[in-house]
Design a protein around this nucleic acid. Structure first.
Lengths: 336, 336
DNA sequence: AACACGCGTGACAACGATTACCTTGACATT
DNA sequence: AATGTCAAGGTAATCGTTGTCACGCGTGTT
């Protein structure tokens, strides 16, 4: 029935000690006589004993496990982040519980509660749009990744969304573009909102009009982004440059431009993607590496696990523009 | 200290029952009077009680958790597979422990042992190259995904690697190619080996020579694939068509071809990738959907959890060739 | 000589839920 | 009326490990 019928008591019996002493050996407690330690070690090896982590966790009150919640696991950005965190956790003997909130606020709370009920020692969460204030009453350390939670005033590990967007729009404009379109995901998502703010700031500073027709602010996937791009290009006065605020939507834009053979439209993407440098023209992007973000988050969580208090200050990861060609296409002289 | 100071005894106390009855209500046992059930329910809601899953798991002997082990989490193929499994597990209240074996046989055993020590109720494993015979003595159900384990004679959920590779090579040949190169990952990996076998079968059947110079059989990443492609193209008699047996390596091939502006070389990839249909020419691929594979694996695991015995028979998922252009480029007349 | 102290160790009680087993009373059956 | 059946609920043991406390012993201190 049992996974392995070998219990600590069996080890203790074989070594001729009490379970407590065997436990000490296993936990590397220094206060054990060398020869006793030896006998226990031998019994462990011979019997093939393995701790029952469930029992350990119950006794200790926490589980050596970190939970991570992201909107979608399949998104390459989050997949890479998960990978990085797993790599950092593994050597410390920490396991990773992965869950997605499925971009659904209802699901979101349930998923986090489920992880907490499992007594994870810590949590890394990319919030979607649920209210997270309930976490204030929870002692489990939580680090927020990529966005701030609603209803909670706490620091997060984020990238410079606003600044990056601002810079890339300025970049596009420096090639003569005045009609710059914006594609974003759902604006209730903080990253989308901030990137839009960067876009707006740049446009205002440049004294360029923010046309309603050039604002596609609800593209949740590549297909929608493609449709929106097509719509914009069909306008009487279409944009000459496009800024897509997310890798996923960028795929849609690229697809639309490609199918229409519009190699004259300038394009820049917030977020790199696999073949961005191989397309013709190669895609200019703002690189924001999920691994860096993840690493910072895990470091912060480790500190919290060691007792550091939650910081109200953000950790902001810088981003950089990678010019590859698509963002440097000049604006053609206006037709009108 | 505790996550939530509310224990089952508190609920029982508030409802005026024994913990046993409260437990019955929580576990949906029918043998509870409606009004008692009501009182307990109320106490649960009011106190905000949540089961301690650690305690439950210790008592029950298993944890409502499924572990998944893949070579690399960041690989889009496995990321999608993980996503699918998580989506299937969530509604059943099953959590997902994700771990990677880091393509390292030493790590592999440790990772699986760690998950078993956690008393997961089941395991889905994409084996790398460790010996898995130790699992024969383990009662936890394990389903193998994408490959068979070494040292164990058991069914797995796999795709038709050999057949798919065979078909795509025949496809390339039907456009006049005789000099067809092969790029694979490490051949100790079953998928790589089988895809190579499909290639070999096709070549033999077509009576085409299998040139050593056209076999790059150790491309673990895109960079190596790119280098190998460049080497081949620099040969005196380079290939006119290339078959890459893995998405990751395909990215390298695409990069090499693109940078050399070689739009004359035919190319096909085992495994689709994000912008394959947007490149010029668009990339012909063998589509093998990670979600389908994952779904089958999870279904099989569910059956095993319900007591079904391990099947020695494979579940083979069919694959299909998606012709997009790059694989239909004709062979130019030989120069010699 | 009395005392405190550190060390190695073990007995025992948690941790919080489930489960095997038991009691009780209501009702049906003979 | 006696008995059997079954629903509803309780008691105490238990899952495997670790923390608390106490013990015996040798040593250095006063």
């Amino acid at each position: 029935m049992s996974l392995s019928p070998v219990r600590l008591r069996d080890v203790a019996l074989a070594a001729g000690t009490s379970t407590k002493t065997a436990s000490r050996v296993i936990n590397g407690d220094a206060r054990v006589a060398t020869d006793t330690r030896h006998r226990v070690q031998e019994a462990v090896d011979q019997l093939g004993y393995q701790v029952d982590l469930m029992a350990r966790s119950l006794r200790k009150g926490v589980d050596d496990t970190v939970g991570i919640v992201v909107p979608t696991i399949g998104d390459p950005f989050f997949a890479k982040a998960i990978e990085e965190i797993e790599q950092m956790a593994l050597p410390r003997g920490i396991n990773l519980l992965v869950a997605s909130n499925s971009r659904d606020p209802k699901c979101e709370r349930k998923v986090v509660d489920g992880l907490l009920a499992r007594r994870v020692s810590g949590l890394i969460v990319t919030p979607f749009s649920a209210d997270y204030s309930f976490l204030e009453r929870v002692v489990t350390p939580v680090v927020f990744l990529d966005r701030h939670p609603n209803g909670m005033d706490v620091g997060a590990v984020i990238v410079d969304d606003e600044g990056g967007a601002y810079r890339i729009v300025m970049h596009l404009a420096s090639f003569g573009h005045r009609r710059i379109a914006l594609l974003t995901d759902d604006l209730t998502i903080e990253t989308s909102r901030l990137r839009r703010e960067g876009y707006v700031r740049a446009m205002l500073e440049l004294d360029l009009p923010i046309e309603q027709e050039f604002q596609a602010t609800w593209c949740v996937d590549a297909a929608q982004a493609e449709a929106c791009t097509n719509d914009m290009l069909d306008l009487d006065h279409p944009p000459t440059a496009i800024f897509s605020a997310r890798s996923e939507t960028s795929l849609g834009v690229v697809r639309a431009l490609h199918l229409r053979h519009r190699t004259d439209i300038a394009f820049a993407s917030f977020g790199d993607f696999a073949t961005a440098d191989v397309l013709s023209p190669a895609i200019t992007v703002i690189d924001h590496d999920p691994r860096t973000l993840a690493r910072r988050a895990m470091e912060m969580l480790s500190e919290r696990l060691d007792g550091a208090p939650a910081s109200p200050v953000d950790t902001i990861v810088a981003v950089e523009v990678i010019a590859r060609g698509s963002g440097e296409l000049p604006a053609l002289r206006a037709v009108s």
